[in-house]
Every structure is written in C-alpha cells, then in structure tokens.
Amino acid sequence: MAAAALIFDFNGTLSHDEPVLCAIYGEMFARHGRPLAPADYYGQLAGLSEEAIISGWLGVRGSELEALMVERVDRYRARAGNGHTVSEEVRAAVRHAAARVPVAIVSGAFRAEIEPVIEAAGIASLFSAVVTADDVTDGKPHPAGYLRALELLGGELEPAQVVAFEDTEAGVASAKAAGLRCIAVGGTLPAERLARADEIVPGIDVSVVRRLVG
C-alpha cells in the first residue's frame, strides 16, 4: 500500500547529528561531575526527550534542569545550525516526497533547534507540520507527537496509511503505538534494537522514498 504521508524524526534521522548530541551531552555532564561515555549515550539515552536525558542522568529538576536544557539547545544551534548535518541525499528525498504527499517532522527536540537546521538545509517550507518537544507533554516512546501530527495533517489519514522514519527504539515504539508503519534508519543503534520496525534501511534517499510514494 502506498503511503499517504511521511513523517520524519529529526535527530539521527533527518539530521545526522547523534554524534553532535553525544559530544554536547558529554561535555555538559562531565562539568557536572557525571561523565557520559558514548556507550552510555547510545545504550541508554538516544531517542529520549531532552528532559528525560538531562534529568535522568544528572538528577536535576526545576530551574537547574531548565537552564541546562537551554544550554544544550544553544550548543546544538552553534554546531549544527548551518544545516550541514542534513545530507544532500536526505534533502533530495524530502523534496521528492513533498511533491507527492504531505510530509511532517515529529521530534523530541525543540523547535528552536530544529527550525534553523531545516531552514539552512533549504527544506523547511516542504513540511506540512512540525511537532516538537514544545508541542506535547509526553515525549517518545509515548505516541503523543505522532498523534498530534496526524491531527495537523488534516485528521482524515488512517495511521496505517502513514509511514514514519525513526532511528531509535524509543522512536520506533512511539510510531508503532500511534498505529503508523515505521521504517528504522540504521546508524544510531544496532539492528536488533530496532526490531519492532516494519523495515530497516541503511539511510534515507530518493530510492527509499520512491518505493513508498512513487
């Protein structure tokens, strides 16, 4: 069945930036006396909401948590805001899809970090909806973000008509809980951790999208 819409996760899926995030968290957490190794990030934290990552690792709450979240976003914008983490292959795939079906983003990242990247990559205008951490109370693996995206795309789409792209098990779980088909993108986590997805691909390009929307 051809897809009636495509929804993309942001970090690690549209934007090849998980190494950037891992480095930023490592720097911040080391300063707070709780170093973060890459194995810890990819093994325990990748795909979770910003609040869950920082509060879970450092045990902070309230104003301290809020300040650290702002710092993390600022650091990310400084390193990825020029759009270089969105590859030409991904940009072409999004353009191909958007010419045929609605496309959207559902992410645990904040709007303030997503928008500069997709603007710089020249694809911001292609998305019919962008759902971020600012828009939902419950982050992935909760399905709230995907359910909100379906509403923004018109509310007439059956979840099974929509395909989500995700790179983490929390993201896959979120998409599946919302009733969507899910294609996992390799590179962030090993294939066995993405086993709930309907399919696993090494990356996103026009050939992958063409199979879904023509």
Rank of each mutant, 00 (worst) to 15 (best):
Val136Gln: 11
Pro102Asn: 03
Leu6Ile: 15
Val208Leu: 14
Ala124Trp: 00
Val163Leu: 04
Arg31Leu: 10
Val172Leu: 03
Thr137Gly: 07
Arg34Asn: 10
Gly139Asp: 07
Ala3Arg: 06
Asp138Val: 12
Ile7Asn: 10
Leu194Met: 08
Phe10Leu: 10
Ile204Val: 06
Arg100Asn: 12
Glu113Thr: 08
Gly43Pro: 08
Asp205Ser: 03
Gly171Tyr: 08
Thr137Met: 13
Leu147Arg: 11
Gly187Met: 08
Val103Arg: 01
Ser49Lys: 01
Thr188Met: 07
Asp138Leu: 15
Ile53Gly: 01
Val94Gln: 12
Lys140Ser: 02
Tyr25Cys: 14
His16Gln: 14
Tyr41Met: 02
Trp57Cys: 07
Gly33Lys: 03
Ile200Arg: 02
Gln44His: 13
Ala149Tyr: 02
Gly47Lys: 14
Glu66Ser: 12
His96Gly: 07
Ile204Glu: 07
Gly33Trp: 06
Phe165Thr: 06
Ala121Ile: 10
Ile204Lys: 00
Leu194Trp: 06
Arg210Asn: 09
Ala173Phe: 07
Ala5Gly: 11
Gly154Cys: 13
Arg211Ala: 14
Val201Cys: 09
Glu89Gly: 03
Asn82Trp: 12
Ser174Asp: 06
Leu6Met: 13
Thr188Trp: 02
Val130Asn: 00
Ala195Tyr: 03
Val106Thr: 11
Val20Asn: 00
Ala104Met: 06
His84Ile: 04
Glu115Ser: 00
Met69Ser: 09
Ala170His: 15
Ala30Met: 03
Lys140Trp: 02
Gly154Pro: 06
Arg111Gln: 11
Ala52Ile: 03
Val117Asp: 00
Asp40Ile: 05
Glu199Phe: 00
Gly145Thr: 03
Arg193Met: 09
Gly47Val: 04
Tyr41Lys: 01
Asp134Arg: 07
Thr188Ile: 15
